[in-house]
Design a protein around this nucleic acid. Structure first.
Lengths: 140, 140
DNA sequence: TCTTGCACCTCTAGTCGCTAGAGGATGTAG
DNA sequence: CTACATCCTCTAGCGACTAGAGGTGCAAGA
């Protein structure tokens, strides 16, 4: 039975060491057993859990959503309707965010293109910010 | 000389009352004069500044970037190279964020589509999160 | 055996950009 | 004069970490 230190767990899961401790502190990860010298000793299952969490975070799921997904994973006989709903909600969020960012992109492009690289009083960047009415792409 | 209260300033600029006070506290907005009863009294110029800030925030500029943009606006004889650089940097950020979100969207769609609405042990949502190797769209 | 030096421990405080709430003062309309 | 909205200051909280202080554990080389 090999002992996995927190550094090793971090390296294998891709989650940083302080973040592993943080996840333990908020109860997302069960407190692992300790060595004689009070150092954490993780199991392979903990690495899987940390990897799951990291991946979910990369997909932009919030901690509370991940908490729910983890309880679903812990009990595989449940219906996956909750997991489905969480993923769908996240998808809607992402789609909205993309739309919003596309509008911003268009507006920023107009600003940057219009900049004559002269002085501030002719600068389109400043001008557009100062006077919202000049936005060519209304989005908010 | 009409006195503009903080509520009025908030209404006209679209910045919330506590946020106006917050901007003053971090020095983004000069402290306005006060009434006899110690209430803030804003000038029309303050409303313009608040509107500028709000618009920049909506475009996702960070407070420190806005601070720089405001000092540029305050001195219109400067070169607008800084403003241009800030806007360009923001544009690059936005473009990267969009690309990243598009990848997430694709992955979420696969997850949601693959969900057979059965039990968790057949759920693609949980499965993909647990095993990153099954991502169809590698992005990280 | 000693020592070097890294990895580990706990705890607190800071990040960003607000937002919420307590507890009290002011201003205005009826 | 009395409601009542709005204002004031101050502190604490949000999410998801991150940084740092100050101390302990552990493995390897001299």
């Amino acid at each position: 039975m090999k002992k996995i230190t927190i550094g090793e767990a971090a390296r294998r899961s891709g989650v940083k060491v302080p973040t592993v401790r943080y996840y333990e502190s908020i109860g997302l990860l069960a407190a692992p057993s300790r060595s004689e010298g009070n150092q954490r000793s993780f199991e392979p299952a903990d690495i899987s859990r940390l990897t799951f969490i990291r991946h979910a975070r990369e997909l932009g799921f919030e901690i509370e959503a991940i908490r729910t997904l983890l309880t679903l994973q812990d009990d595989p006989h449940q219906s996956c309707a909750s997991a489905d709903a969480i993923a769908k909600a996240r998808l809607v969020e992402v789609e909205q965010r993309i739309r919003s960012l596309m509008a911003l992109k268009a507006e920023l492009e107009t600003m940057v293109e219009g900049c004559g690289h002269g002085r501030v009083d002719q600068c389109r960047v400043i001008e557009v910010l100062a006077d919202h009415g000049r936005c060519t792409h209304p989005h908010h």
